[in-house]
């Protein structure tokens, strides 16, 4: 019975335990969709490996086949086989039921965090130079307007950030403003959450639209301050001298 089949089961179980229980000890838990993806990949890897040659295929599929067809099975094995035939459809049924049963949970969301900006905002560049003065001005505006949510350390952990879903962006993360051009930030600050297109789920974001409070000049400067404070640089198509 032992051999490839047993090994595969151990590998799959091991990876599941690692992703589900061990990894969350060090970081946030993984969503179920991701765990499923990784397990599916592991499973295909095992299939590929054990079907590489005739012998390994036999030792992998043979026991399964013999078990299912009942070939030469007696006693406990036979009872187990009948049990599997009874339990498996029930499992599928239960799975289907839980999938379709009404529940209070909102459906899994997949909000596009950085949707495409409208045409009017594409290709704008910051008209203000990056120097000590603009950085200080920008940081000043940031401190009075943005830091309550986005945090004094530009890490999205301001005192007012708690409770927002989605949480305020963490600028220090290399996956946020470092991936974006300055014109993109200009759009997001100016038009706020309600200015997002539908895939960005404008009803979810709590970002205010700042166009009424801040002039364009201030928005451009706060962008300079933000990038400097978060130790990131904007995406550009030309190298800085």
């Amino acid at each position: 019975m032992k051999g490839p089949l047993f090994n595969s089961a151990v590998v799959l179980a091991g990876i599941y335990v690692f992703l589900k229980f061990i990894l969350p000890l060090f970081t946030a838990p993984l969503p179920a969709s991701l765990i499923f993806l990784y397990l599916a990949l592991t499973f295909s890897a095992l299939m590929i490996f054990y079907t590489m040659s005739g012998e390994s295929l036999e030792s992998f599929m043979g026991p399964v086949q013999r078990f299912l067809t009942g070939e030469g099975q007696t006693g406990v094995a036979n009872i187990a086989r009948v049990l599997v035939f009874i339990v498996f459809p029930l499992l599928v049924g239960w799975q289907t039921y839980t999938k379709l049963a009404p529940s209070d949970d909102p459906p899994p969301e997949s909000r596009t965090i950085h949707p495409a900006p409208p045409g009017e905002f594409v290709g704008l560049a910051n008209p203000y130079p990056k120097n000590n003065q603009t950085i200080q001005e920008g940081k000043g505006i940031y401190a009075s307007n943005c830091s309550p949510c986005h945090g004094e350390n530009f890490d999205g952990k301001g005192i007012a950030a708690v409770g927002f879903n989605p949480p305020p962006a963490n600028f220090a993360d290399s996956g946020t403003i470092a991936q974006l051009q300055e014109s993109y930030l200009f759009w997001r600050i100016k038009k706020g959450g309600v200015g997002l297109p539908i895939e960005g789920m404008p009803w979810k974001s709590a970002m205010p639209r700042w166009e009424n409070e801040l002039s364009d000049e201030k928005i451009w400067k706060v962008i300079i301050g933000e990038f400097d404070g978060a130790h990131q640089s904007p995406r550009t198509w030309e190298e800085e001298e």
Binding site: E120, V122, G123, L124, A125, N126, P127, S183, T236, E238
Partner: peptide, 29 residues
């Protein structure tokens, strides 16, 4: 005029409003 600038007029294919890296022609701010 703004709508025409960004669609039928095709102005934004080359011109930007404010300096831009990808603009092929003078910016119009």
């Amino acid at each position: 005029g703004q709508k025409i600038f960004f669609s039928k007029g095709q102005c934004a294919l080359c011109h930007s409003i404010g300096p831009s890296e990808s603009a092929r022609c003078p910016e119009l701010a």
